[in-house]
Design a protein around this nucleic acid. Structure first.
Lengths: 175, 175
DNA sequence: GGGTTTTATTTCAAGTATCAAAGCATTTTT
DNA sequence: AAAAATGCTTTGATACTTGAAATAAAACCC
């Protein structure tokens, strides 16, 4: 989590003044680093680990989720999700409920305590981002949105899992 | 750490069309997600874990590094770095060498095999980014650099460790 | 229906990651 | 030189991760 996670963007060309590629990669690394660091703090302040917190966030999005869905979205194995959910159940932030429609499935449902946990977590990073973003001039906001979306498209182009979680399984089955 | 790392940016306001804050957060999440996912693949293709690969990258930057430096830059404990370096030594991509000037220090030096490992790792993500970035119009490149740097500054403002590793210890001792 | 295959999840075993605390060796300070 | 600080490793404990095997339920086929 690893998150602690991956900071894979590096730049190797040296010698002359930094060009735009390098500058943009450096900025990306700063963004990655800041979010990684803050993410760990955020989780800790909620009494969870970073990975546990991410699972909780995914469950919170819709109120419940299946292990498979979570595993696919986090790109970890089902077994991993099971053990993470074990921890979250032990902490009382989610509960397991057998699906009525298909009793093979287990719905992982967020509890009130889970909702509180997320609500109470002081996401300093996001708060600061929102605050500063809103203080920007209109044109600057627009520029940032355009640029971020451009970069996001460049980076996750053929990796479709970032889109709504509908056909993730179908896509993966191709591998 | 996996590195598995933190995807902490969430958005909760719903109901109406997405505003700019939401759009920018979604884009950021896509960026985070893509880099995280690709980072793991990249490391795996090199026969390492994501965290191990990051250590190797840091060592590769200057050819060698001390455990303390790596620990500070990755924000993990020295003990963690020790065990990670153990793995890298076992794989033959780095070696430990006692510093001549201060024999308490251990320089972690990259080997030829280590250099190869990094060179051979097909960083598909970065390659695509570089390729696409270079194909952009001049004004667009400039816009992206400006926007990314703006966002990076918003996110890592008081977190100074992204800058040269000088006083990270002093900052941390405050906690 | 009864048998086979597929799907969803959990359990188990083994390896990796992480850190606090304790230990060692080497400077630096007094 | 004694004491304090520094750099690193070891140890013990917890968490994360996965592949493989096990369990259970649904879907498919004849």
């Amino acid at each position: 989590m690893n998150i602690p996670s991956a900071n894979i963007l590096t730049f190797h060309r040296k010698g002359k003044a930094m060009d735009r590629i390098d500058s943009s990669l450096v900025a990306l690394r700063r963004i990655l680093r800041a979010t990684d660091l803050f993410g760990r703090e955020l989780a800790q302040s909620a009494g969870l680990t970073a990975v546990q917190f991410r699972v909780l966030q995914l469950v919170a999005e819709k109120g419940d989720a299946t292990a498979t869905t979570i595993a696919q979205r986090m790109r970890v194995s089902q077994a991993t999700v099971t053990s993470l959910v074990d921890k979250l159940v032990a902490k009382g932030v989610v509960v397991r409920e057998k699906s009525q429609t298909d009793r093979r499935q287990t719905n992982i449902c967020i509890t009130d305590k889970g909702r509180e946990t997320i609500a109470d977590a002081p996401d300093a990073l996001q708060q600061r981002y929102v605050r500063e973003f809103q203080s920007l001039a209109d044109w600057e906001q627009a520029m940032i949105v355009a640029a971020l979306e451009r970069v996001a498209t460049m980076l996750d182009a053929e990796d479709l899992d970032a889109s709504p979680v509908l056909d993730a399984r179908d896509i993966r089955s191709g591998t």
